[in-house]
């Protein structure tokens, strides 16, 4: 099914409103400068380049026309209103924006939406619902794998992928022997989850939650 960008129904999107505000501020600043320096009149802002993209998010297709600068994160949050994915640092350092694209976890803040035609995007909303939690969501609740909860959607998307990566035999920095299937251990989980920062420090409970879902006991 194809859905239109909900933002398109509004006369002005939030971004356009901000841009309009910025351009009037620029115009005002230039007006002031003109009086002093007799500069030529300020030119209006050039039209911002856009691109059409169809994103597959949580099994549904969404046709969007986006400013080319729109990150996948902003497309999810601002255009599709899937606000479960969080913006933390917006520079790939904190992991709060982690989503799963074509089966791989990535930082949605460091990729452009227009770069993902046809890709299958899974966000926290696509993993489970309040009535039917994903096993990883249930385990985070059971083990108290959060305090404020802001990093939690990213932690959970990352954790689901980490277990897939171990299952696929992808090694990590702490894997002792590169030619042996990596173990499920506390050291492995901590290393593999190092791209997800939790300022509340729920790390030990996060490791317990992931361990339970993996069906193992960590040494």
């Amino acid at each position: 099914m194809l859905e239109q960008d909900p933002g398109c129904h509004l006369p002005l999107t939030r971004r356009e409103l901000l841009l309009a505000g910025a351009s009037s501020a620029v115009a005002a600043a230039h007006a002031g400068a003109r009086a002093a320096d007799a500069e030529p009149p300020a030119r209006p802002l050039k039209e911002v380049p856009t691109a059409d993209i169809t994103l597959q998010v949580n099994g549904r297709a969404h046709a969007l026309t986006l400013d080319t600068r729109t990150t996948l994160l902003d497309a999810l949050r601002e255009h599709l209103h899937l606000t479960g994915t969080k913006k933390g640092c917006d520079h790939g350092q904190c992991g709060a924006c982690t989503v799963i694209v074509d089966g791989r976890r990535i930082n949605s803040c460091l990729t452009l939406a227009v770069m993902h035609p046809g890709a299958q995007v899974t966000t926290i909303e696509g993993l489970g619902t309040p009535d039917h939690l994903h096993p990883m969501q249930r385990a985070f609740v059971k083990h108290d794998g959060y305090q404020c909860g802001y990093c939690t959607p990213g932690q959970i998307c990352s954790a689901v992928s980490v277990l897939d990566e171990i299952r696929e035999g992808i090694p990590s920095h702490v894997t002792a022997d590169l030619n042996v299937h990596p173990l499920l251990s506390i050291d492995e989980l901590r290393e593999r989850m190092s791209g997800n920062i939790c300022r509340c420090g729920a790390y030990s409970n996060i490791v317990e939650a992931i361990t339970e879902v993996a069906g193992g006991t960590t040494a």
């Binding site: 790939g92 982690t98 990535i106 460091l110 992928s161 990566e165």
Partner: peptide
């Protein structure tokens, strides 16, 4: 880097 960054 991190697992997420290495994937991309």
């Amino acid at each position: 880097a991190s697992g997420q960054l290495r994937n991309k």
